[in-house]
Design a protein around this nucleic acid. Structure first.
Lengths: 199, 199
DNA sequence: TCCACCATGTAACTGGTTACATGATTAC
DNA sequence: GTAATCATGTAACCAGTTACATGGTGGA
């Protein structure tokens, strides 16, 4: 099977549809109104993206006709779609993704529990934490050596980045605590992934 | 004068070149090796972007031939370029930019002192702080009402976003302190912008 | 009747990604 | 002489942006 290429927006859509069957309009609202404010969200972006996913057989759109409402194409994920989503979620974390702001990593984490189960989420958090630590120490070293010769606003902008990553690093500890707690209190069975072949 | 459209990468390049004349290769290294890890950075992105800026007369490339080195096209900003940069930096902060992660706003802040002077940087920080406060309270309200029905990983991903913005909000206070201190200690004259017409 | 909202689409454009190509200089 | 690094480019492709188009439904 050739490697399908799917944009980040595509994965965001696939993940949302896998969580809950939705129409294009529903999905647009998610991007417009919830905390997923990045990944927007114009009709010219999401309708073609949904069509692409459908042509790859990862989702299927069914026209709702039961009620007297206007035609509404509700998409749901196929087994292949869930599998593909799981594959994406299972990718090891790369340093370059951390560098680019870790937004895609957070998106992946958001879907992880539902698709791969809580243990995977914990593993991901541990890996993420390690990657953040590496990147942070690099940033801090950079700030120490180059900070003095930067204008104040540049130095502060860099400081903002460092604080952001430090905050994320702290967050991983918080999230791990939350997960460990939920795992011990109820020995939560992970949701079965639809297919076995998630390399 | 028609409104030129310049991508964020274009502004990043313009700002860097305005700080210090540089070749395409120098600029690539900045994106590859410093904390400006987003905005990359392949030759296929930055060389065409530099050409576009040059065709808009915002920068000028001069081939270095003094040394025996290989031809190296060093770009420097023109007065029109500095003016355009100032115009971009002067844009009021929009909520939508905050929502998209505030990366462009941080980029703007990084260049601000050099182009518009310290007072502008302070004003920007105050505006930014207010925008963050608004956005944060919206996010927190969203988390309160929708958090319970989200899976743990989704809830935690949201929490990460909130923490990130809260961290930025705290950072604005820190940055304002740093600026006020530097302004009172030495009554630093802002660098004159090259042209008056920054609407 | 007209407005606001639900809902889906399309067409033109363009900036960035990926990958390839080239050639000069320095160090070993 | 050859590998690494400096340095600049180009060409194909495509996803996302902007803007426009359409048409149903419910309420004032």
């Amino acid at each position: 099977m050739k490697a399908l290429d799917i944009s980040v927006l595509g994965y965001a859509l696939l993940g949302l549809v896998d969580l809950k069957p939705s129409s294009g309009y529903d999905l647009r609202k998610v991007f417009a109104e919830t905390a997923m404010g990045n990944y927007s969200s114009s009709p010219g972006a999401i309708y073609p993206a949904l069509e692409r996913l459908q042509s790859q057989k990862l989702i299927r759109g069914v026209v709702e006709n039961s009620t007297g409402l206007r035609r509404r194409r509700v998409y749901h994920s196929t087994p292949a779609g869930t599998a593909q989503l799981g594959k994406w979620l299972s990718k090891p974390i790369e340093q370059s993704e951390v560098m680019r702001g870790a937004q895609e990593l957070m998106l992946r984490f958001g879907f992880m529990e539902h698709v791969l189960g809580a243990e995977s989420a914990v593993n991901f958090l541990e890996e993420f934490r390690a990657a953040l630590k590496t990147y942070l120490s690099g940033l801090e070293a950079y700030a120490r050596t180059n900070g003095k010769q930067m204008p104040l606003s540049g130095r502060l902008a860099l400081e903002s980045g460092i604080r952001g990553y430090r905050g994320m690093y702290d967050w991983t500890a918080y999230a791990l605590r939350a997960y460990r707690q939920s795992l011990t209190s109820q020995p939560q069975s992970p949701i079965e992934t639809a297919q076995g072949g998630l390399r």
